[in-house]
Computed example of a mutant assay.
Amino acid sequence: MRDISLKDAVTGKVDTISVETAVICGECYGLGTSPDSIVERCPHCRGDGTNGEKNCKTCTGFGTLIENPCPGCVGDGRVVLRRSIAVTIPAGISTGMRIRLSEQGETGPGGGPAGDVYLEINELPDNRFERRGVDLHCTTAISAEIARTGGTIDLDTFDGVKKIRISGGVKSGKTVRVAGLGFPRLRASGEVDGRGDLMITVDVRER
């Protein structure tokens, strides 16, 4: 689970996560043996790795026996390490969506192919903007003069500071729509198909 801010969900970002997985042993490069060791076929399963329908207890399913196992991994070919992985969080991602990090998971026994890491996203609430579908909502204060005569205000959005046009005669509670500054529509393909709108509720202040 990865917590991200609403801003990061809107704009996307490159993040770094820390995972603890089994990786190929750096001493034996996945072989599981010491340099002078002899690898023999398991006499109990004759190299098959199984005994009936179960893994062979003698070789634990490998089919071979190692005379002198690698001291770094004790014959497994893998060691558990914590490492950092860079991950691209796309714009428009939402809570519950998962990002697949291909071949960044557990290395298979004996240096086999690595699995995948799945990162589940949890979108945190924002103290200024609220997401409703693909629209973003916020409330901003304006002066009584702007409310009477109209004018522009500067609003800090996820896209930077924007000048917002306010029509004259507006009252508290009125909503101003700004097209294209809402939440990105993320397709299953990973591409963004436009954005929702920014809905600004004005709060007229007499002073």
Rank of each mutant, 00 (worst) to 15 (best):
G133Q: 07
I164P: 01
E120T: 13
T157P: 02
G111I: 07
V161G: 09
A188Y: 11
F158V: 05
P109F: 05
G115N: 07
H137I: 00
R185H: 14
L119R: 08
R165Q: 12
G168I: 01
E106A: 14
L155Y: 09
S189N: 15
A188C: 09
E123N: 02
T152R: 15
R128Y: 07
V170W: 00
V134F: 14
R165K: 13
A147T: 05
L186P: 04
G190H: 03
V117H: 10
L186K: 07
S167F: 02
A114G: 14
E145V: 10
V178Q: 05
R128L: 07
G115I: 03
V117T: 15
R165A: 08
A179N: 15
A144L: 10
P113G: 10
G133R: 06
L136W: 05
T140C: 08
L136M: 06
R128C: 06
Y118T: 15
K174P: 04
P125Q: 06
K163A: 11
I142R: 00
E130A: 08
P113V: 05
E120M: 06
T140S: 09
R132T: 12
T140L: 03
L119H: 11
V134Y: 15
G150Q: 04
L155S: 02
L186C: 10
T149Y: 11
A188M: 10
I142S: 01
R148M: 08
T149Q: 12
Y118N: 15
G151L: 05
I146F: 00
P113M: 06
R132N: 13
S189T: 13
V176M: 09
V161L: 03
V117Y: 11
S172W: 03
T139I: 03
L155E: 05
R185A: 08
K163G: 12
Y118H: 15
G105C: 09
R177W: 01
K174L: 00
E106C: 10
T175L: 02
G160Q: 10
D156N: 13
L124C: 06
I164L: 08
E130K: 09
R177T: 14
R148T: 12
Y118W: 13
G151I: 08
E123W: 01
E120V: 04
L155G: 00
T140P: 00
E123Q: 12
R131S: 09
S172K: 05
D126T: 03
L119P: 03
G150A: 03
C138N: 09
I142T: 05
K171D: 05
E130F: 01
G151K: 07
D126K: 03
T175H: 12
G151Q: 12
K174C: 04
G115V: 01
G168L: 01
P113H: 13
A114W: 02
T107N: 14
I146Q: 02
A141Q: 15
F183L: 04
